[in-house]
Design a protein around this nucleic acid. Structure first.
Lengths: 341, 341
DNA sequence: CTGAAAGCGCTTACAG
DNA sequence: CTGAAAGCGCTTACAG
């Protein structure tokens, strides 16, 4: 039988309360007593039953997800995944709330984070806007003992406990590698479509893409980055304009959201004469475009995994437990039309 | 406050024991009583605390992993992941055992499965050899109320509860798509390297590869499949021989294991004059080959995810709980040298 | 600094 | 068919 606190108490000749004090590193135990208990613990090979502990504590976790009120498909999915988690969280003694803030708005994000700190919570997950004032607000949260996980987009050099998202620089490099190999002519021109350089994920993808393309496919020319705020309508206009001005565009790397707009333009061009296209995030529209041969590859991050991972990490932090790095690494999915889930 | 069994008992005017009987669908409750309780349950919006239930039951899960005694890197990793899980399983009231059986040996697998059924267990995970007698043994397990999960390689049309592995047909199709696009000449010759046609995963990869290559890259010629039993030494000999007989091989798809042998041959040829190579499973050697430009892409399944997923599913089945399909889908990782983890 | 007792939410003999 | 009581492994006031 697995040893319990009773076994330790008996073996060390102390009471349950004392065992508990030692187990939880609480003060008020003479060091001789503490040592006796510690010896019993290793001698018996005791490992504590966390479920029982949490039950006794009546512990219920309280987490908050701060999400941008962005209406692109990816953010909508992300919100749905959090809502699903909320539905499942009832039996797991966790209370999860969603707070929406305007997209790409550091000030609003800071206000929301400070409000959470004032209310109190065990942990916060946020899609970070990469700005000094956000860094400072996160610092205030961690100072207050609240665990912080960045979601989807990270915050550079901050005190957040964990980042639940993909390596965006690797994603950019991967996109460049595929783009270079998929281009039929070695010396085409490539257009890059981004949302905003205010968020770190877009900046990192861009950087990664440019570096690999520059090193390994030096004859490919790159047009100035098109910044379309992840807005389908704006994307559509700007891509149309770019293709008009540069009819020889051989490839498009869409590293942000709003791909619906891009796909409308591609559809007009037709499968045969469209450029090579690599986009991010598998949504209803990119999936359809992949199947309809309008897009060549989609790099994806799984919002369900990100949300579940963020919650697992917040729980582990709240319990003071280590996180299983391998389990929490969010992978870059590469989808061709052949491996769509 | 979340309602508990006490609240239901009070609200329905019955005892805890009766509430428990209704909750767990146990017999011996008059239907009037049962209905009173059921009404209270919905009225209060009760949801049971599984952790507390398991604690009270003193439930401890007993699972068994049946793994092939294969010494390729992938199987070694898989075993290590199970061992890690065993280490972590102590606090989670689960007892997990590993049983080793000779690789590609249906009879030995059947013997092992029947032994487990006789001993008793809550669930079994096995790397299936796709044979009728294995199917029958699995049937006997599920008949005995033991949950069965196939791991890495599935068992066609069987009564297994779940498959924790990738879609191998999609993996083969994806490999073909990449191969077709990566080949510099549209009309090269491609060699295929497999382990054994006795395991379903290899057969499915082959099928998927051939179908996409045939449809989308019809001018690519395919050489007869080389079957090398996942054995590095054998792989080395056979690949060397193939390259000697067909010096014009432009691509190699290695859909099984034993890639160390393949990589030795590639190293001799040198980065510049080697064929396009797509392989499976990220191991120390394929990783190094990817970084050293000896391999172009590696399709991977994450053994850690597969093992953890198998355990989650076995637990859910043992508890009679639904599995979260989205969470348990094992993805095909595509690694280029740019997105290595 | 230490311990006896009650309790977390559920289940399980046992008695009636 | 139904209920009172004890217990799962841990924690928490409270008393000393």
């Amino acid at each position: 039988m697995k040893p319990t606190v009773h076994d330790i108490a008996r073996s060390a000749g102390v009471s349950l309360a004392t065992v508990d004090r030692v187990l939880n590193g609480r003060p008020g135990v003479r060091s001789v007593t503490r040592e006796k208990v510690e010896q019993a613990i290793v001698a018996l090979g005791y490992v504590r039953d966390l479920a029982a502990a949490n039950l006794a504590k009546g512990r219920t976790y309280s987490f908050c997800f701060v999400l941008p009120a962005n209406d692109n498909s990816f953010m909508i999915r992300l919100r749905e995944e959090v809502e699903d988690a909320i539905r499942r969280s009832a039996p797991e003694r966790a209370r999860i709330e969603i707070v929406e803030v305007p997209a790409f708005d550091a000030a609003a994000l800071v206000t929301a984070l400070d409000a959470i700190r004032d209310q109190g919570a065990d942990g916060v997950a946020l899609v970070a806007v990469d700005a000094p004032e956000v860094r400072a607000a996160v610092e205030r949260l961690t100072q207050a003992g609240i665990a912080v996980v960045t979601l989807v987009s990270d915050l550079g050099a901050s005190s957040r406990d964990h980042y639940a998202g993909i390596d965006n620089s690797a994603a950019g490099r991967t996109a460049a590698n595929l783009m270079g190999r998929f281009l039929s002519k070695v010396d085409g021109r490539v257009a890059i479509l981004a949302g905003s350089m205010l968020v770190r994920d877009h900046r990192e993808r861009l950087e990664g893409f440019l570096s690999v393309l520059g090193e390994e496919f030096p004859r490919v020319a790159i047009l100035p980055v098109i910044e379309a705020r992840d807005d389908p309508a704006l994307v559509e206009t700007m891509v149309r304009e770019a293709l008009r001005r540069h009819p020889d565009i051989a490839g498009i790397y869409s590293l942000g959201a709003g791909n619906r707009g891009l796909i409308r333009v591609l559809k007009e061009k037709g499968t045969a004469s469209r450029p090579v296209v690599i986009a991010h995030e598998l949504t209803a529209s990119t999936r359809e475009a992949l199947q309809g041969d309008l897009i060549d590859a989609v790099l994806n991050q799984d919002p369900g995994h990100e949300v579940r991972s963020a919650i697992r990490v917040l729980k582990a932090k709240a319990d003071g437990l280590p996180v299983l790095a391998a389990q929490e690494r969010i992978r870059i999915d590469i989808f061709l039309k052949d491996n769509l889930p």
